[in-house]
Design a protein around this nucleic acid. Structure first.
Lengths: 127, 127
DNA sequence: CTATAATACGTTCAATTGAACGTATTCGTA
DNA sequence: TACGAATACGTTCAATTGAACGTATTATAG
């Protein structure tokens, strides 16, 4: 499998918008960007083009305009991104990362509860 | 605060080795690298130099040889790295990331227990 | 109809990153 | 003492990435 080229940071940023919208034109993606980001129309165009040629998005010419949509499961791509990060930064050990998140950044009580529930579910499912 | 330049991937890889060893020469770092990584001595040298000029490491000339050591708290730097990732990829929401880790990758029973204990501790500490 | 606005697409450009070269020094050993 | 192995350090180089330009084309408001 010719492992497709990696997602650059700005590319992931835009891909996530397309994923969220389901499908999107250059204009729409630009509009979803935080105003403060200040990217040019042409720049967004370029990045979406790159995402397409890297195999992450597909494009459909609808009338006059290009409509981009996800080619691969966003879930899967996110998984790869996380995995890569985990490997590089924590030698693939999830636990230290989770502990980092838990301690360093204050998880709210809300979130802690939520998390414990998730873990319980997981234990159930495991048998 | 003149936010120091970001850590490139290979740089983080080497920085982590220096952190682990406490201090290290080019040679030592090279030796710690997985044989399969195949970096040249000169390349390691270059990266350590860059890490130093970016402010992450400090260097001390010991006899003939440069000894590198951490300049900033590794903990802090790791925190920044994680935070940056979290912001970029999960809009700063820790929970979705944790859930990704829990579900997508099989946490072992061992790790699940461990994690639950951590969460309990955290709840204790919180009052 | 015609000028303006919106697009697509090919191209460019600078900074960063991954990786190494070459040269000058120095150290240990034959 | 002369040589080869290690180093340091300045330099280089190609690929990738962030960002945009310029030109051609089309759609639309006057």
């Amino acid at each position: 499998m010719p492992k497709r080229p990696p997602l650059a940071k700005s590319e992931l940023e835009l891909a996530r918008i397309v994923w969220r919208l389901g499908e999107a034109t250059v204009r729409q993606v630009l509009d979803e960007l935080p105003r403060q980001r200040g990217l040019d129309f042409a720049t967004v165009q370029t990045y979406l083009r790159r995402l397409t040629s890297k195999g992450y998005l597909s494009v459909e010419q609808r009338g006059r305009t290009n409509v981009y949509s996800s080619r691969l499961e966003p879930r899967r791509v996110m998984g790869e991104v996380v995995r890569d990060f985990l490997d590089r930064v924590f030698d693939g050990q999830a636990l230290p990362l989770v502990e980092q998140l838990i301690n360093d950044r204050g998880l709210s009580d809300e979130e802690i509860e939520q998390l414990q529930r998730t873990l319980d579910e997981l234990k159930e499912r495991k048998r």
